[in-house]
Design a protein around this nucleic acid. Structure first.
Lengths: 339, 339
DNA sequence: CTGAAAGCGCTAACAA
DNA sequence: TTGTTAGCGCTTTCAG
């Protein structure tokens, strides 16, 4: 195993000082063309590359962003991770991943660990934050942005879809489709996304003087979801439409409805989801759903984060990205329904 | 934004030297109970936590593992990432993620970047390595382990499923099911996994004096896969069984077969996949497939990696994890077929 | 524009 | 068991 190549070694070979080497590899520094040339030659001859960690120590810039994720089973998150990583890589940052179990206590530990690595920022995907923890991050001067979750905590930015409006549209859509018994299959109640979707959906029914015909909680968990569907449809007047708070649950619901309960979707029941995960467009499902625009969300997340890093005093930003209804074949489409 | 709490500050408050503080936070160091108590009190009063980066600089242990992934769309990888991250977290390591595009050039850049962060090891999931790059890692003293890919490069460890045997079983299974026209839908030809699966499958047919009735290449890409299926079945004597090199492709194949070509699975065609992604067990598919045992693969990957980190001179390890055939409903099950 | 010098926060000998 | 002393590899004043 060869020796580690240091700036010092490059300096000696190039016949300059070690700081000259540093300057060559520091974007806005002043170096003469001659020095630069000598240094670059020596550097590539030796295979030198700056040590990010050493640089971080003195400059305080680790070029790392901590990402906390909980549910990678939900296809939406891998997609986000991929896009986020790419966007950040383009800006010279890299992602340090931390998996959080759903238990509350874990998150605190995890965030502490993240801080130990001197990350420049933290993205919390699908998890919420205690205000206590939030202030520890602030104390450490590390900006936090919540992704797909929002919270009214001082100084915490958040990027979500416009869950309320997205769900509101679904309500209108189902109403326009002349459904008689409209149900809602909820996600985990602790999630702000779930709450906003429920509120938006109920609000739309409300406007029409209508109420939920049935409500069950699937908690975003597969087996819990299947049970919820069974319960919801095991009654004399079963729903003729269900809005499901997430695609992962909606796909399971369709499967149970069709293959276990022998119902036709959308013949007997219309199903609408939320997220638009890749599987939603598979031919077996063709799920009508509300799309979370991952690209836009990620872009906003990155810009928010970078701004916070660059401008320490910056006010927190809250963004709600438009979430359009995507018409496919799992729900009856009202006559003349546009967009 | 509060000042950063250093070991020095803790030392002053506790009335001890800074190295005493360091020792308290270093597992096997010798400290008196009295000193430890004083330090811990001061530390928690101040909210002190050791700086991983500073520690890494002097000890050479960054507690970071670089992970390179290419296809997060394949559900198998998010699963692996989650398990890998959890296993590594349990050992005090964390994952620095790097996304690699499929282009060859990118990978080199990416691995260089990883090295800049002084990671202690690298896991390459579903990408191969140029021998040139491999030696750069060796030179840097950073062990590499390939995950779900294998290569005969000096000093590079690899963990895969036993793709050959897994695929071989599929061949036997389809043969026992008395299929007449057996086809193979390949993945990207550059992948060692794909090659081993094909070899294993063909070998099983060979033993019975049989040959592939049709062969197409889906490259592990959705649209390419759908086309491949159309081509494969648009002929007078269409296959009555297909082994597909990956579940992601197999699910698409089932959809095209059923919903576009109007064929019954397994009535008209038996379909068998490889991976056993979560969606394979969904009621709409019930895909018979070969399971990649992610838990075992990850555990092996971690132990291999840690051993290489601990024992710099260690010989590379190659592991092929058993991959059992999981019987579900997408392929005709031979009379009396066991296991 | 360039070099010398002073650390960033910590661990690891080395004495005491 | 403890404190003292060197640095790890780099950026960043500060003179020149």
């Amino acid at each position: 195993m060869a020796e580690k190549v240091t700036a010092q070694m490059v300096a000696e070979r190039a016949g300059v000082s070690q700081s000259a080497v540093s300057r060559v590899f520091t974007p806005g520094a002043s170096v003469s063309a001659r020095t630069e040339k000598k240094v670059r030659e020596a550097a590539s001859a030796l295979g030198y590359r700056p040590n990010v960690l050493a640089r971080a120590m003195v400059s305080g810039r680790s070029r790392m962003i901590g990402l906390v994720v909980a549910y990678l089973e939900n296809q939406f998150y891998p997609e986000v991770l991929e896009k986020l990583s790419n966007a950040l890589q383009a800006e010279g940052y890299h992602i340090l991943v931390f998996m959080a179990s759903q238990e509350a206590g874990t998150l605190d530990t995890v965030v502490e660990e993240i801080l130990d690595y001197q990350v420049e920022g933290i993205v919390l995907a699908s998890v919420s934050l205690s205000s206590d923890l939030a202030s520890r991050c602030q104390a450490a001067g590390v900006p936090v942005v919540l992704f797909n979750r929002s919270q009214d905590i001082d100084g915490i930015s958040a990027v979500t879809s416009d869950n309320f409006t997205g769900a509101f549209q679904v309500g209108q859509f189902l109403l326009a489709g002349e459904h008689e018994r409209i149900a809602y299959l909820a996600g985990w109640e602790g999630a702000s996304t779930q709450r906003d979707r429920q509120r938006g959906f109920v609000a739309a029914l409300d406007v029409a003087g209508r109420r939920l015909h049935a409500w069950e909680d699937g908690r975003f968990e597969p087996s819990r979801t299947a049970d919820a569907v069974r319960i919801m449809f095991d009654r004399s007047s079963r729903p003729d439409a269900v809005f499901v708070a997430g695609d992962q649950m909606a796909l399971i619901a369709m499967d149970v409805l069709r293959h276990e309960l022998g119902l036709s979707v959308p013949g007997d029941v219309s199903v609408v989801g939320f997220d638009d995960v890749p599987a939603a467009s598979w031919l077996s499902y063709r799920l009508t759903t509300v799309r979370q625009q991952a690209d836009l969300m990620v872009a906003r997340c990155v810009s928010t984060l970078l701004r916070a890093i660059e401008t320490p005093g910056a006010a927190p930003e809250r963004h709600a990205i438009e979430a359009p209804l995507i018409l496919r074949a799992s729900a009856r489409i009202p006559q003349g329904w546009t967009q």
